[in-house]
Structure formats: structure tokens, C-alpha cells
Simulated assay, not measured.
Amino acid sequence: MIRVLIADDEAMIRAGVRAVLTTDPTIEVVAEAADGRDAVELVRRHRPAVAVLDIRMPKVNGIDAAAEIRRAVPATGVLMLTTFGEDDYILRALGGGAAGFLVKSGEPEELIRAVHAVAEGAAYLSPKVAARVVAHLAATGVGAPAGRRSAARERVAALTTREREVLVFLGGGLSNGQIARRLHVVEGTIKAHVSSILARLGVDNRAAAAVVAHEAGIVPAAQSEP
């Protein structure tokens, strides 16, 4: 079973997320929180595999809660729920170690897919979120969109052929085990490749590497595990 905590200050949103997740017999919602402070405490108590956090919550916001959860219970993966207009928050959450990002207006199936991905140690970026992050970086960062894509492609070009192949799957939200099955190698080999990819790209986590992959334009529109 994948044990999940849900944190959102709106009871209706929590109920909706719970209703979606409970349609999957492999997922168990073990706790709910209405603010970030309670979310951190409940994660410490229940130690779920995944914490699904709203970005904007009272007392402690989702970004700070995510960072504290990553420090206190590193085995718990953090999946952030966002709305449009929160791109700055998404970038901050990336730096705080969040592993996945979904928009609240997304499809229910995507929520289930993201929880499974994060539980398996993957980074999951909703296609809508990935597109927004790339556009936001282009709008607020140094250089025009074409220049940023060129820079991202240069960073990716520094990888080996196998590392680029792994990065494409990583950007598509696949776990090490799923990538290993795709490439017919042992999982430990993929873990070593991922560590090298993070170092070569100069990023701290899989989600940030996924952003580079999307910015470089190397991630297909849809990837799914057979």
C-alpha cells in the first residue's frame, strides 16, 4: 500500500483528493491536514510514502512545509498541488526538494499516476506545470526563450548518450526501476546514471533535472509505463 497524507486548507479540496485516491486499491490516505504546520507533524507521526500539499496554506505554507518534511522525514516524497499564477512558488518548491507538481484542474488519473511516481522515487511534473515552468523561466530569467532552450540543450549535450536517454525518461516521470526495465539494465546502473546527470547538469534533485529536460525540449508529449 502507498500511504498518503493530504494537506489543503479547503475541506472540499481535501475531500476531492481523497475521493480520487481511494479509487486506487493500492493507495491508503492515512491523514489529512488543514495547514502546513499540522502537515509536518502528521508526516512525522504517520511517515507516509507521499505527502500531497497545497502550496498556499495558513500557519506554514506548502513550500516551507515541504522543506521541513524533506529534512525531518526524507523517505516521504512531496507532491505539490498548484493553481495558475503560482509559478514563482513552483520554482521555490523545486529548490526545497519537492518531487512532483500537479495543477488542481488536472485529470484525476494524473493525480494517481503522480502519487505512484513519487512513491517510487521519481520526479513528476504535470505537462501543464512543466510548460508553465519553462515559460516562466524564459520570461523572468536571463535571455530569450530560444536562448534558454539553447542553453539547456548545451547542458544536455554534455551528458553521455546513455545519460541523455535516462534524462528523457526521468523528465517523463519514470522511476529508476521503470527506466531500468525500459533500458534492460539493473536498477543500480540507473541510480548511478541519475547521480551523474544531476552532477553534470548542476542541479540538486530529479525534479530540477526534469525541468532542464523539458526546457531542452527532449521529453515526448506523453510517456507511460507498459
Rank of each mutant, 00 (worst) to 15 (best):
L201H: 04
L53C: 00
A51L: 02
D35Y: 07
G95A: 11
A146S: 14
R181K: 02
E28K: 10
A208N: 06
T189P: 06
T22P: 03
L183D: 01
R18G: 02
Q178P: 00
N205V: 03
E120R: 14
V50R: 02
G96S: 09
S150R: 14
G171F: 04
E28V: 12
A158P: 08
G143Y: 02
S195C: 07
R113D: 06
P145T: 05
L111G: 06
A210P: 00
L174K: 00
R132M: 15
D88R: 13
R206N: 06
A33P: 08
L79F: 06
R45H: 13
P108C: 08
V29S: 06
G177V: 11
A7I: 07
A146D: 14
P127W: 03
A119F: 03
R200T: 14
L81A: 04
D24I: 13
A122E: 01
R70M: 15
H116K: 07
P25R: 04
A138K: 05
D87M: 14
L91T: 11
A39Q: 05
L5T: 01
E68N: 06
G177T: 12
K191D: 15
E10Q: 15
E120K: 11
A213W: 08
A208T: 12
A130G: 09
K128A: 15
V103W: 10
R71A: 11
G16S: 06
L42Y: 08
R153D: 04
G100M: 02
R37P: 10
I179E: 00
A15P: 07
G36P: 08
R162K: 07
A33K: 03
R70Y: 04
D24E: 15
G106Y: 09
R206H: 05
S195T: 08
L125N: 00
D38H: 05
P220G: 08
N176C: 08
E187G: 12
I6M: 07
T140A: 07
I27P: 01
G141T: 04
L5M: 02
I63V: 14
R164I: 04
A31G: 05
A222R: 14
P145V: 13
R181F: 03
A158R: 15
H184W: 09
V60Q: 09
A199F: 11
L183S: 07
L5R: 01
H46C: 14
G202Y: 05
G62D: 02
S105F: 06
G62L: 14
L42R: 13
V78K: 02
V212C: 01
I90C: 12
A98K: 06
I218L: 00
D204A: 15
G36A: 04
H193A: 10
N176R: 09
V29W: 10
A146R: 03
V203N: 09
G36E: 03
L91E: 05
Q223E: 12
I190N: 01
T161N: 10
L125H: 07
E165N: 05
A31N: 04
V103Q: 13
T189H: 06
L21Q: 00
D24G: 02
A158I: 11
A152E: 09
R71E: 15
G95T: 02
P108L: 11
V134D: 00
I13R: 06
V103A: 10
V168D: 00
A208G: 12
N176A: 13
E165H: 04
V52C: 11
A131P: 00
V52D: 04
E154P: 03
A31V: 01
H136A: 06
E32L: 09
I2T: 09
I63K: 01
T22F: 08
E163Y: 00
R71V: 12
I218E: 03
G202E: 01
